[in-house]
Structures are given as structure tokens and as C-alpha cells.
């Protein structure tokens, strides 16, 4: 669980994130949604400590990250896996070497064990036969999967994804979403995902916060989102004709379980 209390972040006087508080839950896929430029990436990078926050607190299972000493911060970082918007794979290393990299830096495994572990993670994200290729030689979807494999290789407690679906076709995007949800449930990670993809929202939005101009404007689940009463959020969701129709013909689509509360939630 990650608790966020009143965090703010500005860059040389320009306020990007303002007074955001929320809780990201363990074993669930927590979504941060918002328009391009609303501050999602800055928020995510502030959460993991890549940006130093100006104010507020971030607690990783009770440990106050921003107040920790450098050494303790580093220990928390080793419990964090992150997938960046562009994948951020090391382009001079092969797919396998990319996934092995965190093991090289931080594990006491021998080479054989490291290769085994890296292969296991590559299999977990359904990647095979590409381990000797370089990132530039595989497709965008494969790069994303490699990045996910690298993020989970050290068994993280916390997983962060910055737009895992950007640049992917809807079908591949769905596969990636499902994969993220499966991994989250399988390993009980606290998973935080940035997205502006409404498909992802309806697919894996167990907990959603909506960021508008750097502030949290709405919070809820995918079940609440269609009939929410937040004007900015509605402008965001129903920007597309498709979702306008979804709202209008809500009854027609109501046999689609995705838009209805899960059985277990009742």
C-alpha cells in the first residue's frame, strides 16, 4: 500500500502537481488518468522519488519515503519496478541482457541462475525467441513486454507503469493490460498505472484517480466512472463519440460484464 498525503511539485516556479492525496492499494491495479500535460508522469516520478517533492508525504507501507536517508531510500528503490513511457531499454544490450541487468547489479546469483531467472520473466510476459535481439530490432509491443520483464525480475513490491499502452494497437494494448493485472494479483504488488486510454480504464480500473491541471479532481472505480458527476472528468471520458454512445446506450451494453460491478464486489 502506498499512501500519498498532500504532495506538491513545481519546476522553477511552475506548479505541476498540487495537493494530491490518495491511497494506492496492494494487489490492485490503481490508475492515474488525465489529459496529456495534466501532470501524470510528473506525479508518477514524484511517487518513486525521481522528482523530489516540494511538500507532502509518500509512505510505502508506512515508511515515509521522502524523509528517509539515502541508504534507506535505495533499499525501497530495490522494491520498485517501473516501466517507462518509451520502455527505456538499454539500447546497447540485448533483450536478455536488459532483463538480467538488475540481477547483475543487485543479486548474488551466478550467471546460470541469472539467465534462468531472466528467461522465466521473459516467459511470464510471453516473450520467447527474441532474447538475443537488440531493442531496436523488436516491435513496440515486445519492447514494452521486455520492460515489464525487467521491472519484475527482482520481485518488486511496487510496480509503476507510465502509459504502458501508448503506441500499441488496441489488441496488443489489451494483452498488456491483462498481463499487468495478472502479475499484480499473482504477486500481490501495489501497482500504479498512468494512462489516458479509456479501454484500460474500463478493463483494469480497480481504483482510479483523475488528475486535472495538476490536482486530483475525482477518485473512484470503473463502476462509478460512467455515471460520475465531475464535469472535467466527463469532458475527458466522453470526448470520443464511442463513449458518448456507451453512456447513451448504457442498457444495450449492460450485458457486458466490464461495465457492471463484478459479482464479488456486490
Amino acid at each position: 500500500m502506498i499512501e500519498v498525503v498532500n504532495i506538491s511539485k513545481s519546476f522553477s516556479g511552475k506548479q505541476v502537481i498540487q495537493n494530491i492525496s490518495t491511497v494506492f492499494e496492494k494487489g490492485k491495479t490503481n490508475l492515474i488518468i488525465g489529459q496529456s500535460g495534466s501532470g501524470k508522469t510528473v506525479l508518477l516520478k514524484s511517487l518513486v522519488g525521481l522528482h523530489e517533492i516540494d511538500e507532502g508525504e509518500i509512505k510505502f507501507d508506512g515508511r515515509n519515503y521522502s524523509k528517509l536517508k539515502f541508504r534507506d531510500k535505495k533499499n525501497i528503490r530495490k522494491e520498485i519496478g517501473m516501466v517507462f513511457q518509451g520502455g527505456a531499454l538499454f539500447d546497447s544490450a540485448t533483450i536478455l541482457e536488459n532483463v538480467m541487468y538488475p540481477l547483475d547489479m543487485f543479486s548474488a546469483m551466478n550467471r546460470k541462475e541469472k539467465i534462468e531467472r531472466a528467461r522465466f520473466c521473459l516467459n511470464r510476459v510471453n516473450l520467447s525467441n527474441v532474447e538475443q535481439l537488440y531493442p531496436a530490432e523488436v516491435s513496440g509491443g515486445m519492447q514494452k513486454r521486455t520492460a515489464i520483464a525487467r521491472a519484475i525480475v527482482l520481485n518488486p513490491k511496487y510496480l509503476f507503469f507510465d502509459e504502458p499502452n501508448s503506441g500499441l494497437d488496441p489488441q496488443t494494448a489489451l494483452v498488456i493490460d491483462k498481463l499487468i493485472k495478472e502479475i499484480t494479483e499473482e504477486y500481490g504488488t501495489t501497482t500504479v498505472i498512468n494512462t489516458h486510454d479509456m479501454n484500460s480504464v474500463m478493463e483494469i480500473g480497480e481504483k482510479i484517480i483523475f488528475i486535472y491541471q495538476g490536482e486530483k479532481a475525482w477518485e473512484g472505480t470503473k463502476h462509478d466512472i460512467i455515471n460520475n458527476d465531475c464535469q472535467e472528468l466527463n469532458d475527458f471520458i466522453f470526448a470520443s463519440e464511442l463513449f458518448k454512445k456507451v453512456k447513451k446506450n448504457f442498457s444495450i451494453l449492460s450485458d457486458d460484464k466490464r461495465f457492471m460491478p463484478d459479482e464479488k464486489d456486490k
Binding site: 525521481l50 528503490r77 517501473m82 517507462f84 539500447d91 538488475p102 547489479m105 543487485f106
Partner: peptide
Amino acid sequence: ITEQIDALEIMGV
């Protein structure tokens, strides 16, 4: 700019 440095930092490197 491709966030590889961020990726290193987040691993704790």
C-alpha cells in the same frame, strides 16, 4: 531523454 537514466536510478543504481 529516453528515460534510460531514470530506469537506472529507479533500480537503485
